[in-house]
């Protein structure tokens, strides 16, 4: 029986690859190292990624470069309001030559599915992604088809208040491990974008870039991520965070019941166990990227906003600047209310 190498070794062995991937992404998405790391963490944690921002902020570029760098099959689907579920998952068509129904696979059968402007499609079409995202399989005409592994959905969306957008159903929002916002680049980065963009149009650099890691390497890294060790303290920290949200939710609702006044400091939806799981998984990936085989509360804090904010907020934040959004967000309030050293308050 072949002995699997300990996680520490895989972590260390993968460091070179990870640095390479990050470098490559950062050359395309300029001035956003933090977001790049989070996006990579999301993919390593086998979660789906939702990128929300204004048009023209580099959402698609990030999605694109992620797919190509990891060497995965990739297809982009532009979501519009007349898009039908069959356009995504595929359909059976009668072939007169063979007298049989033949399956025309939709774009979902790629390893990376880029759902561009997902919230412009109707909720029905959005829901077509549900099964694929949760179960990694699709059913067409009653036949279940396995999807390739690894499988990611990277979706981009415009902020909700934009014209012609449908809000994503909560169930679907919950299936995205992270929701990222890129935000405006700083002066230096923007200058560089302006400089490089004129050269790049002809060269199509991003498309031509060869993959940095093979699929097998990627799968090995994903397995290593799930094996990262978690201490009891970190588990309690995660539990404490989700409990704060649940307590805030229940006290909020009961107060509404009684006197019609809302006096709760934090008003949010409660975090589900799926959210806690996603939080743990994402934190593991962050530890992995950080060259550690164990999670620190730092990892949890680093991913908490992107993993939980879209599950917590009662209504979409309309603040444009993501940095401002974060500092005033519910997620930040919850983080601030839990003692890191003694999360359950013994």
């Amino acid at each position: 029986m072949p002995q699997t190498p300990p996680v520490v070794d895989i972590v260390q062995a993968s460091q070179a690859a990870i640095t390479a991937i990050l470098n490559k992404i950062e050359t395309v998405v300029l001035g956003k190292p933090k977001e790049c790391r989070l996006a990579l963490a999301c993919l390593l944690a086998q979660g789906h990624l939702l990128i929300e921002d204004l048009p023209g902020m580099g959402k698609t570029t990030l999605a694109h470069v992620l797919a190509t760098t990891l060497g995965l099959t990739y297809q982009r689907t532009q979501f519009t309001n007349d898009l039908l579920p069959a356009d995504i998952v595929g359909f059976s068509i009668f072939d007169q030559a063979t007298n049989r129904f033949e399956l025309h696979k939709g774009p979902i059968f790629n390893q990376v599915v880029l759902a561009d402007e997902i919230n412009r499609a109707s909720p029905k079409t959005q829901s077509a992604l549900l099964e694929a995202m949760a179960e990694q399989q699709v059913s067409i005409d009653g036949i279940t088809h396995e999807l390739p592994r690894p499988f990611f959905v990277i979706a981009t969306q415009n902020p909700l208040f934009h014209a012609g957008t449908y809000p994503l159903p909560e169930s679907q929002l919950d299936r995205f491990m992270m929701r990222l916002s890129l935000g405006f680049p700083d002066i230096k980065a923007e200058k560089q974008i302006l400089l490089t963009s004129s050269q790049r149009t002809n060269q199509k650099t991003a498309d031509n870039q060869a993959a940095v890691v093979s699929q097998d390497e990627l799968i090995a890294m994903q397995d290593a991520v799930s094996q990262i060790s978690v201490s009891n303290d970190v588990l309690e920290y995660i539990i404490a965070l989700s409990h704060v949200s649940r307590r805030a939710y229940s006290s909020h609702t009961s107060q509404v019941n009684n006197s019609g006044e809302t006096a709760a400091e934090i008003s949010c939806k409660p975090l589900s166990p799926r959210a806690s799981k996603a939080l743990l998984q994402a934190a593991k990936a962050m530890a992995f990227i950080d060259n550690r085989d164990y999670i620190l509360p730092d990892d949890v804090q680093a991913v908490f906003y992107v993993v939980c904010q879209h599950r917590l907020e009662m209504q979409a934040n309309q603040q444009l600047d993501p940095s401002q959004q974060e500092s005033t967000s519910v997620a930040r309030q919850i983080l601030n209310s839990v003692d890191v050293l003694n999360p359950l308050g013994y």
Partner: peptide
């Protein structure tokens, strides 16, 4: 040390 600040921070 603020409560929510991690050891590293």
């Amino acid at each position: 040390k603020p409560l929510a600040m991690t050891v590293n921070d």
